[in-house]
Amino acid sequence: MKRMRTVFAGLAVVAGIIAGAGVASSASAHGWVTDPPSRQDLCSTGSTSFDCGSIKYEPQSVEAPKGSLKCSGGNAAFGILDDNSRPWPVKNVSSDLSITWKLTARHATASWEYFVDGQLFKTVNDHGAQPAASVTHVLPNLPAGKHTILARWTIADTTNAFYSCIDVNVGGTGSTDGTTDGSTDGSTDGTTDGSTDGTTIPACGAAWDKNAVYTTGAKVDHNGRSYTAKWWTRGETPGSTGQWGVWTDNGACAA
């Protein structure tokens, strides 16, 4: 009987070690956006003018249930990340923006999603694959102006996701004091993408054809306006897809 108790005790220790290893593996499955620096990355490097609290010690830990659109993911411990009244540093970037994640564990991934000012801009499906320690995605043709981008890393085999918010000024070259207020209407105000003062109107391209296939960079004319395709498209009417759709409105054009 004594020998059996010893065996059971040994099995319990082994089970405890295995369980502990499983918990440690899950707990270490963290990550955050480092380039451009996310809000938690700025906190961790002391780049903010205010005290961020505990997030400065664990930028990788903004973990919460899937589906949130908050910078904190709804994790109350990191609620400061949701405070847009704070003077978060803003990064001047180009319209084709590369976003890089640093992962402290390569957790099986369902998807990566990017929201610009609350609107879904791009989704990358990984279908449960294991990512590398560093992951980079490109957001093409971002609208000009100041924006907050929410990057969401959704895990495949848990109920959680990781969240990072990035404050950027697309096309910005100087002060980022909020003068552009995050609006996205500057590229469609009837000028020529800021390259002129409105005195020069570009020539119209070929008329849009609903049956034609258009690839990235293709230019068409529709109802007296010039449009550029952001990606492959067919049958999507220019001017009807919105600012996040396939067509970039270049403004009025001369026939």
Score class of each variant (00 low, 15 high):
Thr45Cys: 02
Gly46Trp: 09
Ser47Gly: 13
Thr48Gly: 05
Thr48Gln: 02
Ser49Cys: 12
Ser49Glu: 12
Ser54Ile: 09
Ile55Phe: 06
Ile55Pro: 06
Tyr57Arg: 03
Glu58Met: 06
Ala64Leu: 01
Lys66Gly: 00
Ser68Arg: 04
Leu69Ser: 10
Cys71Val: 04
Cys71Thr: 03
Gly73Pro: 01
Gly73Phe: 03
Gly74His: 01
Gly74Met: 01
Asn75Phe: 05
Ala77Arg: 07
Ala77Phe: 02
Ile80Trp: 03
Asp82Cys: 02
Asn84Asp: 06
Ser85Met: 01
Arg86Val: 06
Arg86Trp: 04
Arg86Leu: 15
Trp88Ile: 01
Pro89Lys: 08
Val90Gln: 06
Val90Asn: 12
Val90Ile: 13
Asn92Ser: 10
Ser95Trp: 06
Thr100Ala: 03
Trp101Leu: 05
Leu103Asp: 04
Leu103Val: 04
Leu103His: 12
Ala105Val: 01
Ala108Pro: 14
Ala108Asn: 09
Ala110Trp: 08
Trp112Pro: 01
Phe115Val: 03
Val116Gln: 11
Val116Pro: 11
Asp117Gln: 15
Gln119Tyr: 14
Gln119Glu: 13
Gln119Trp: 12
Leu120Pro: 05
Leu120His: 10
Lys122Glu: 08
Thr123Phe: 11
Val124Tyr: 09
Val124Arg: 10
Asp126Pro: 00
Asp126Ile: 03
Ala132Tyr: 11
Ala132Ile: 12
Ala132Leu: 10
Ser134Asp: 01
Val138Phe: 07
Val138Asp: 11
Leu139Asp: 00
Pro140Arg: 13
Asn141Ile: 12
Pro143Cys: 08
Ile149Gly: 05
Leu150Lys: 15
Trp153Asn: 01
Asp157Val: 09
Thr158Gly: 05
Thr158Leu: 03
Thr159Ala: 12
Thr159Asn: 14
Asn160Arg: 15
Asn160Ser: 14
Ala161Lys: 10
Cys165Asn: 10
Ile166Glu: 03
Asp167Pro: 09
Asp167Lys: 15
Val168Leu: 11
Val168Gly: 15
